[in-house]
Design a protein around this nucleic acid. Sequence first.
DNA 1: TATTTCAGCGTACACGTGTAAGCTAAACAT
DNA 2: ATGTTTAGCTTACACGTGTACGCTGAAATA
Lengths: 205, 205
Amino acid sequence: MSQKITREQQKLQTRQNIIDAAFASLDATKSLSSVSLREVARVAGIAPTSFYRHFKDIDELGLTLVDEAGLTLRQLMRSARRRISSENGAISTSVETFVEFVLAHNNVFRLLLREHTGTSADFRAAVLREIQHFTDELTDYIVLKEQTTYSLAQMQADAMVKIVFSAGGELLDASDVQISDITERTKRQLYMVHFGATVLVNKPV
Amino acid sequence: MSQKITREQQKLQTRQNIIDAAFASLDATKSLSSVSLREVARVAGIAPTSFYRHFKDIDELGLTLVDEAGLTLRQLMRSARRRISSENGAISTSVETFVEFVLAHNNVFRLLLREHTGTSADFRAAVLREIQHFTDELTDYIVLKEQTTYSLAQMQADAMVKIVFSAGGELLDASDVQISDITERTKRQLYMVHFGATVLVNKPV
DNA sequence: TATTTCAGCGTACACGTGTAAGCTAAACAT
DNA sequence: ATGTTTAGCTTACACGTGTACGCTGAAATA
């Protein structure tokens, strides 16, 4: 018995095609604002004007992509936490998970990194929200695991995220040999922050 | 006695006009790749086609702007170092100097930050070079002032620059009340890295 | 003074862009 | 069975873009 494709299902499918097409168009040389409605439509296999049946304008598509990217980011967080429970250290495991994520989903991470400093205030705000979620979760984790104050944990998490995300940016242009260097360096830098934070707990400045 | 304007001087003047026009066009909503030759020419007061008398293409202008921005960055470094010699701490003074710089030259800093993750590999590389200079100078300073190894000083400097530059990005969108928050937080985060680094010297991981 | 050089100009072209207007056909509701 | 809704289409328009081409007038040089 062949499935009956309802109109609604078809529309949802096309919408997903547009999103996929947009992500496919987002290589190293394209930003959200430089991706054109016409190109996306071409890749998605629809007429340019049909785009408007699904999104109000190109910016709405952009925000949707940022949301999807944020979702992927939270999956990363979950997957890292699952791995931490094993024998290796939390920092080491987290960094390795993050590196794998960036390399596997480099288009997604590039999107976040680029729009974080991009030309659209809306996109910047959207990315900032996602990063903030990420930082908040890390803060909670630190508060849970370490003996520290909340505000100190916040600063520690913020510093760590900044270091890790910056390293992620380096990964995007890195050669194979550089990747392990960056990974090791980042781990050490997080150790610095970690140790420094415990010092600050006892001896506040 | 009125000055005689040679042809060469005039050309240099026009070239500077183009550069100034480009910087003026670079507000929060423009990246190097979205600045158009025609707009720059319009602001500089020349015909679009005259642009080619001074630059091979728009990318050459972009690289020139990055170079100028890097120059400004090095001025910042010098000015910070001059101030450190006074009574306040090096970290505190440096962060304050940096914050002042970002607020005063926000167009310049935005250019660096944006192109650091931008769509042009050439621009990314150019910005990376400037940041690397910055990090190298900081590394030398740390090696000079602290008892540490060179590679550890490198990591420390790298982490500090990452934190400070990320904070600089936040400053660009920050309100007045947020600015001092960011400043204080950044100082504390640098203290973390600093203390953590000294811990790592004695107890290597 | 006569000649060469060249910064700047105006015109023109092909191209990609967003999007408005109206049509078609198929999936719906009645 | 009949009427309504709507996803997707084709056509069309105005606009900004990079840049090729040839001209002009003044500065530089001989």
